[in-house]
Every structure is written in structure tokens, then in C-alpha cells.
Write a protein that binds this DNA or RNA. Sequence first.
DNA 1: AGAAATACTTGCACATTGCAAGTTTGATTT
DNA 2: AAATCAAACTTGCAATGTGCAAGTATTTCT
Lengths: 136, 136
Amino acid sequence: MSLSLDMFGDRWSLLIIRDMMVRSNKTFKEFLASGEGIATNILADRLRRLKAAGILMAEVEATDGRKVNYRLTEKGIDLAPVLLDLLLWGAKHEDSGAPCAVMAEMAKNRDWVLAETRRRWEERDPTPILPKFGPG
Amino acid sequence: MSLSLDMFGDRWSLLIIRDMMVRSNKTFKEFLASGEGIATNILADRLRRLKAAGILMAEVEATDGRKVNYRLTEKGIDLAPVLLDLLLWGAKHEDSGAPCAVMAEMAKNRDWVLAETRRRWEERDPTPILPKFGPG
DNA sequence: AGAAATACTTGCACATTGCAAGTTTGATTT
DNA sequence: AAATCAAACTTGCAATGTGCAAGTATTTCT
């Protein structure tokens, strides 16, 4: 756990991973526009560190050599349970602005949400997971 | 989630909570002796912030007015799923030194481990959770 | 060839952290 | 009762990390 916190014991790393996981953010610009207000140098540094740790990988887009697409690795997508629990905790104990019913659904269908998150990652499906709930 | 990371987006807060949860650490001195090497000023600051956030509470020991006993609140013990997932992730993807079999057991009995963690908190049972596994 | 877009890097002020030492309050010993 | 010890902090300061504004490199568009 101490090792995990060497990597995630900062303000931004987990937010970046969350943006990749639930918003399908892929590019530097998208991360900047995520609204949390990360500085460009910090973003560059975190992407570098997460890449070095094998949590994400980077590749330049085939059709546009300017763009770099970041993508979670298996190690990265395995953080989904941590992020989901953190989200549920925040929704329960902090004023998150998220509707209670939605959060209750997510807590109830925890395993399905995790499976669906992984499926979207595997199939590169960029559909956001938040508005859709339940197996049916 | 951004709100959660305002609180836990640092190197030490979650480690302190982990030490309270799995090692039943209660006093300033015990936290210092946990082996992670936190500085005294940082420890004091984090305890203050976690207390202000309602994640733990402090009370001076009745029989020894020097000692302050820290204890997780309901809000604090609710972080157990996050910590467990982080532990399992670290065990899977980083060299944690923890035996694989033990971690596999924890992953399998996730719900039981969480229930047992909460029971120990409610009953103030200081038995460490790590060497004991399975419902039977 | 020139302008625009994307992904960074750099310089610098400011905040946070870590270490060592000191302070405060309460218990224990003589 | 005085001196000593113990636990929980606080303080000072150097080093490290962060955030903002600006600049650079490479690639694409016109």
C-alpha cells in the first residue's frame, strides 16, 4: 500500500486515470479541458510518471502526427475498483452534487459497473458510463 | 472524486487511516513508529486535518492525561473498501512482498474482510486482520 | 510558404515537505 | 515538593514540489 501511494499520493494522478476511465480522455488537450485546472507542466510530468509505471501508454495518432493518444494498460484499468469505491465514498460523505439514486444504483450494481468499465476499455468504447445503469 | 482527493491526495493521509484500520494504531507515538518515516509536524498536521474532516476523532486517555487516542469515525471506517482495493491492486501489480496466497484469499473473501474490519472497529477489537482469513 | 494546432518545456514566485531541535503538559520517581 | 521522564506536539530553516505565464518543437492546414 505504501508502494501504491508512492504513485497515487498526489492530487492529480488518480484524477487523470479517472478521466481516462470514465470520460475516455485520450489527449493532452482533453485532460487540460477536464475542468479541474491542472497545470501543463504537472500534467506532462504525471503522464510521464504514469507511463513509466506502466499504468498507461502513449502512441501518436496515425492520421495526425501532432496528437498523442494515451490509453490505460491492464495495470491501469485494474484501478477501477479503487476509483469506484472512492467515488461512492465521496458521494456518501461529501457534498458531491451527484444524485443519490444514481449513486445507490452504482453501489448496488458494483460488479456490473466494473465489468462494464472493463468491457468499454477492451472494446475502446468511448460511451460514458455514468448515465446508464443496470444490466438490462 | 475531486473532493475526495482534496483530502487524500497526499502521501500520508491514507497511510495513517490504514494504520488505524489494520494495525489499530491509536497514539501519536504509534503512528511515528509505524516505520514509514513520517515527520512529526506532518503527522500533527494530517491528524488535525483528518479530524477537521470528520474522518477521525481524538480524545485524551482517562488514565493518562498525556496520551491522546485517535479513533476512526463512521466516515473513516467507510474508507475500508478503498484501502482494501488499493492493497489488492498493489499486491497484484507491484512487488509488495506479501504472499500471493494471502492476497488471493483476501480478494476472494472481500465482503467478509470488510465486514470483519468493521466489526473490529465497532467492538474496539485490536486484533490485526492480516493473519486470519475466511469465515470459518 | 505562412498560419494554426497540439504537445509539450522553461523560468520563476510561492507553497509544501522533511529534518532537527525545542516547548508544553502531565506522570513518575526520589 | 522537586527533579526527571514521557507524550504530543511546535518552530525554524533548507530543500523540494507546485502553479502560472510564456516560449518552443513538430506537424497539419490553406
